[in-house]
Structure formats: structure tokens, C-alpha cells
Design a binder for these strands. Structure first.
Lengths: 234, 234
DNA sequence: TGTATTTTTCTTGTCGACAAATAAAATACA
DNA sequence: TGTATTTTATTTGTCGACAAGAAAAATACA
């Protein structure tokens, strides 16, 4: 029998296809469901999501623009690799953006921003309590992205978002061997950061942002040094 | 008569279409040939460049990813506006990236980088001599982009490139009423920056980068204040 | 058996066509 | 004449199909 009538074609709203694919792939990449180096097949995705290749292609172009996938001409496209041998540029950029965005948030935030920030702060604290590593990673990124938004500099915000994304991938890797000591500390530091922002204490915010970032970098480097044996494929 | 045989279909290499459209539109946007707010018609472009809408669409998606065009769903896409009423976020980001990239270049550059940088330095000096405003803008951006490359932090480099692009649009506007005093000064400052980088004098590079950036910002703000009457359409 | 060449296969890049969504124009109605 | 509603027109978003490129497989040849 043919498939006429049986499946009612699953109507989608007219521009939602690309966003769907984009969000799906982005999440799968950032959570390492698709590890670095994984090939991405357009036709396979197309038939899995029951749509043409066109919207999928558009999503892939966007992801490539954000550096999450690499496209070699005429040949397969794959999830972007992480340069584990030299994370320094990443760390440098991350620390600076932590500082700058926190500082700007202290300068430029509006009252309504704080409730958003506090919301993510609580989400993060909840994730720490339930020891949900994936949720911790995601809510921590959301927390700092919200601070960046409150700083109201779209250039910094977009770079920071990109760094936080990349950070999600790296953290996802290390949280396998996660020690429970540091998340609680981060909750406290987050609370201090919020207080500094609210008080519009620019210098303190700057200092806390920097210290917080360096804590994270140090932790990651420690974890990295410890289990450098577990190597990710490719 | 039909057009069979007459025009031999103008064969293009297989992936070159998108790059062609992308480069073309990018240049026209940055040089204000397409001023902010200009509508971009896909079909019109398609028949002008004698290709299908698909590669044009891909180029537009890329440009949208870099913030050079805005796409409203189901409706026309147009060249991104510049928020002239609040250039502060732009200036803040620009100054910081000038500093950081110059500093990192002093730290991380390799000998071969210097010749590239010097090349653009000379191009800029030549543009100043011939008083070619468009060339000055473009070579100045290329000069600083080359310094950023020598700093070897892709995150900073890509943000800085984006800022330099945006700067090209803004400068392009003000160079209409351009006063010849400052380009020569910039040539000298560029030379000092090169010297600091070559000497690996990180602190001096940082200081020079910051000062240079602030010079530019100040100039633009002065020009902006002076002829705030000439308003660009939309 | 090992290397070079041809053939096949598989994936991407491009095309033309159609349908949905929105704006503009035209019509109806008071 | 002015407003509301329908109709038309224009532009985007999606689709299926096909051709070009490159790797893999198969064949030819030594």
C-alpha cells in the first residue's frame, strides 16, 4: 500500500523548519551527542526530519558561520573539532569576556534584567542540588549569557555566547569525572556577582568576573591534566 | 530569436557562485554602494548574476550571520542599519579589540607575519598619498586585521574583523567630509605599532593600540558632531 | 601480486517550479 | 468620500530532480 492518506504529511509552520534543525543540531553538538568529527549527512537528516534538503542546508550554513561545523567543498560536512592541544586562545578570550560582560552589566543593567539573571541562578543552583551535570553546564552558560545581555553590548554578547557554547562542549567532556566540590562554590560566586551588579559596583564586578573565570579555567586545566588519558575520538 | 547558442551559458566553477555573490554584496554593503536599509531582491540578483536563487540565498544567510543584513521572515531582506544614535557599544568593543589584538601580536607573532603587516602598512601610506579615501579605509582595516591574525586568537580575530567591517561603513560615511590632517598621523602611529610588535614589547603595544583606537574614535565623534546635519536615508 | 586506470557510487551544489505569506490594489459598502 | 473587505500581485520558503566532484570499488595491466 502507498503512504497516501496514512501519514497526514505533518504540516509545519512555514519558516520553522530551519530553526528546528538548527536548534536540534546545535544541542546535539554542544552536548556531544554528536562528538567532534562526526559526519553530518544532509539526505539522512532530511528523511529523518521529513523535510527537503533545502532548510537543512540553510541550518548547516548558519552553524558553519558560528564555527560549530566544518564544511569541506564538495565533500562531507562534519562537527568541528576542538583543539585540545592549545586551549589557550579559548581561555584567554573566555576570561576577558567574563570580565567585560560582568563589568558592563554592573554599568548598564536595568532592574528587569536582574530577575532574569536570578532565574538562571536558581536553575543552576537546582541543577547542582540534583547533580545533573548537563543541566549545570547549560544553566551556567545561560546565567552568564543573561549577564552579558544586561551589559547591552551586542558585539561582546555574541562573542561571549560563542565562547560559552564552545565551553559547553569542553565541560561536557570533563564532567564525566566531575568532583562535587566546585559547583557549590560557583553558586556562591554567582550570588556575589549578582550583588555587585545590583550595587552597580563596576570594579568589584570586574574583579569577581575575572576571578570566577580563572577559577573555571583552572578547574578545567586540572581535570584536563589529570585524565589526559581518556582521549576523545579524532 | 532565442538565446540558444549565442551566449555559451558562462560556465562557473562548481562552488564559486556563493562566494562571488557573498563577496560582491559584502563589498557593496561596506562601501555603502548599498546604503543601510536598501532592500535586497533575490530574483533580481539571480537574473543579474545569471544563477539560480539557491546560491544567492546561501550568501544571504551568511551575510545575515555576520550581521550585515537583516531578514524579516517571509518579507524582504535589507542591508542592516547602523545605530548612529548609540555608537558607544561599537566604540567600546573596537577600542578593546584594538588593544587586545595589538598586545597579542606583540606576544605571539612570527617573523613572517611582519612582512604581511608591513605590506598593508605601505598600502595604507600609498592611499594616503593619493588621497584615495576608499582605499585608505580598506587598507587600514586590512592592516589591523593582519595584526590580529598575528596575535593568533581566532575568537578575537573574528570579532575584530566584524568590527572593522562595521567601521568601514561608518568611516565611509564621514570621509566625505574628510580633513587631511589625520591620515598622516595614523601612518606614523602604525609605524610605531609595528615597531612595538617587532620588539615584542607587549605593554607598549597595548598602550599604542589603545591610544590609536581612541584617536580614531575621537575623530569619528568629532566629525559626527560637526556634520550631524547630513543624514543618511533611513 | 602490486600498481595504474577505469567505472561505479555517493554526496554535494544548483536549478526551475510551486505553494504559503504578506503587502498592495481593487472593490464593496456606509 | 471614507472605511472595511476581497482580490491580486509580489516575494519568500520549500520541494524534487539532476548534474558535477570526489572517493571507493572494480578492472586492466605489468
Amino acid at each position: 500500500m502507498t503512504d497516501t492518506d496514512s501519514s497526514p504529511t505533518l504540516e509545519r509552520k512555514r519558516g520553522s523548519g530551519v530553526k528546528m534543525v538548527y536548534d536540534l543540531l546545535r544541542d546535539e553538538i554542544l552536548d556531544l551527542v554528536l562528538p567532534p568529527g562526526s559526519p553530518i549527512d544532509e539526505v539522512q537528516l532530511a528523511e529523518r526530519l521529513k523535510m527537503s534538503r533545502t532548510p537543512i542546508r540553510e541550518a548547516l550554513v548558519r552553524l558553519a558561520g558560528e564555527g560549530l561545523i566544518d564544511t569541506l567543498p564538495n565533500r562531507s560536512t562534519m562537527v568541528a573539532n576542538i583543539d585540545f592541544l592549545n586551549l589557550n586562545p579559548f581561555f584567554d578570550a573566555l576570561v576577558l569576556m567574563y570580565r567585560v560582560t560582568t563589568r558592563l552589566a554592573a554599568q548598564n543593567h536595568r532592574p528587569e534584567d536582574l530577575s532574569v539573571i536570578r532565574g538562571f541562578h536558581e536553575d543552576y543552583a537546582a541543577a547542582v542540588v540534583t547533580r545533573d551535570a548537563l543541566a549545570m553546564i547549560a544553566t551556567n552558560a545561560a546565567f552568564h549569557a543573561a549577564i552579558a545581555e544586561a551589559g547591552r553590548n551586542p558585539y561582546f554578547t555574541s562573542l561571549f555566547r560563542r565562547l560559552l557554547d564552545e565551553g559547553r562542549r569542553i565541560l561536557r567532556l570533563y564532567y564525566q569525572s566531575y568532583e562535587e566540590q566546585f559547583p557549590q562554590r560557583f553558586v556562591d560566586e554567582h550570588a556575589q556577582i549578582i550583588a555587585a551588579i545590583e550595587a552597580r559596583d563596576v570594579e568589584t564586578a570586574d574583579r569577581l568576573g575575572k576571578a570566577h573565570a580563572e577559577q573555571i579555567v583552572e578547574q578545567v586545566q586540572m581535570l584536563f591534566a589529570r585524565n589526559s588519558k581518556l582521549d576523545i575520538a579524532l
